[in-house]
Each structure stands twice: as structure tokens, then as C-alpha cells.
Nucleic acid binder design. Structure first.
Length: 142
DNA sequence: GCCAACGTTGGC
DNA sequence: GCCAACGTTGGC
């Protein structure tokens, strides 16, 4: 069982879009590192859903589960080509946003790929990092 | 809207 | 294989 972080711009495809679809096809990835991560995803893996490019709302909004493993991304064109999609379903929305600013400010999260290689749209998350962000997301807002 | 960081492309 | 030019992502 592995943990991941998947980015999407909420204006393009946000948490609410996924909830209304129930199962989302994660398409459009055109970067080899991100593609390799998509290929490594297994059914039952969990991923943080991260809203990118969203000003103060940039950050982790909830958890999704991989329900379909890599298959060709037909939005690129007919295979063969290198690009793949996975299918994900919403699991739980956080009680509050865990913003990028907070992640930046948390010393235990400084080694996250998010800090080192911010532009990667599909990233691996370590279990320790997963637990920290999960706990932050369960805190009640004041 | 700007721009830093990074990936990709293509000439050589 | 190197590297300059260019394109894209995404934070701010």
C-alpha cells in the first residue's frame, strides 16, 4: 500500500467535480516522472487531492483512493503512446484545508517532494508525511 | 501577470 | 552528448 499526492487546478477539475462524478479519470498527465508514478499506483492506494494554483486555497483538500490502474490516456490520441490515466474515487474531504503555506511551515514536512520538486503533479508521499498531513486535516478550524 | 524552476526540443 | 532556446507549471 502506497501513498500519493495528486494535483489539480480546482477551476479545471476540483474536489467537488470528483465527488459529483464519483469515479474520476485522472487524465492529461504529460510528464514522465508523473506518468511513472501513475503506472506505479495500485488499486487500494490512497492519494491526497491537492488544489493547485488556487491562491490561499492552494493545498490538500481530501483523500482519494485508486480504483483503476494505469491504462492509455485516450485524451492524447489513440495508443500506442506513453501517457496513461488512473481512476480515483473520493474517500473523505478534510475538515479543513491543509494549505501549502502550512506544509511549508511544518519542519517534519520539509523533505516532501512537494517542497523539493513543486511542479510534479503526481508525487509519492511517505507514510510519516501522510499521517502528519492527515492529522492536520482533521483539526477543527477555529 | 510575473517569473523561477524545471522539462523538452533540436541544432550541432 | 551538450546546451541554448523555448514551453509549461504553479506559487506568489
Amino acid at each position: 500500500m502506497a501513498y500519493w499526492l495528486m494535483k489539480s487546478e480546482p477551476e479545471v477539475y476540483g474536489w467537488e467535480s470528483l465527488v459529483s462524478e464519483k469515479i474520476g479519470v485522472w487524465d492529461g498527465v504529460r510528464n514522465y516522472s508523473a506518468r511513472n508514478n501513475l503506472r506505479a499506483m495500485k488499486k487500494g492506494d490512497d492519494a491526497f487531492f491537492y488544489h493547485s494554483n488556487a491562491g490561499k486555497l492552494t493545498g490538500v483538500v481530501g483523500v482519494v483512493r485508486v480504483v483503476g490502474e494505469a491504462e492509455p490516456d485516450i485524451t492524447f490520441g489513440p495508443p500506442p503512446h506513453p501517457w496513461v490515466v488512473v481512476k480515483v474515487a473520493p474517500v473523505v474531504k478534510f475538515k479543513r484545508l491543509v494549505s501549502l503555506a502550512e506544509i511549508r511551515a511544518e519542519p517534519r514536512l520539509q523533505k516532501m517532494e512537494l517542497m523539493r520538486y513543486g511542479r510534479l503533479s503526481v508525487q509519492k508521499v511517505l507514510m510519516a508525511e501522510w499521517r502528519i498531513i492527515w492529522a492536520m486535516g482533521q483539526q477543527k478550524t477555529g
